[in-house]
Amino acid sequence: MSRFLRYPLYVKGNPQRRVFFTDFFIKLLKSDKERPPNVVTFECPVTMTKFDVKNYLERIYNVPVARVNTHIIYVAFKRDHKNRRYKPKDDFKLAHVTLGEGQTFQFPENLFTKTEEEKTDEELIEEVKGRQKVRDDQLRKRSGVPSWFGV
């Protein structure tokens, strides 16, 4: 058991018959390295344990889980313009889940990329602006001297 009570047995107020959602949310990631087809990577909160991940996947999604390996990713401090320390992102836990017998998973490719036809005018304008900004930044780095001038 963890140090603090995460699953409250009783919550004040009526009605008492309520549906509780999970306290955690885990995110499916595309794994950084090449992994076997039966290994899936999730990003989870640091407080979530291996057993939590296993129960989460088995109870909610009916996914058979054979083994969960976890490790915590420490996000380093950064300094802002006043030299104060800040965390760009909270620490998080990665869970490499080995699926049960016969289960495989492949992360879908091009899940959130749109084709040219699906893009709206505003998005196209944003894209052009972005490209222009890159060019401007390059110019600014060279103090306005064009790229063709130089060694």
Partner: peptide, 9 residues
């Protein structure tokens, strides 16, 4: 086996 051995603990 071309994967990292960490994948099988």
């Amino acid at each position: 086996w071309s994967y990292a051995p960490e994948n099988v603990s």
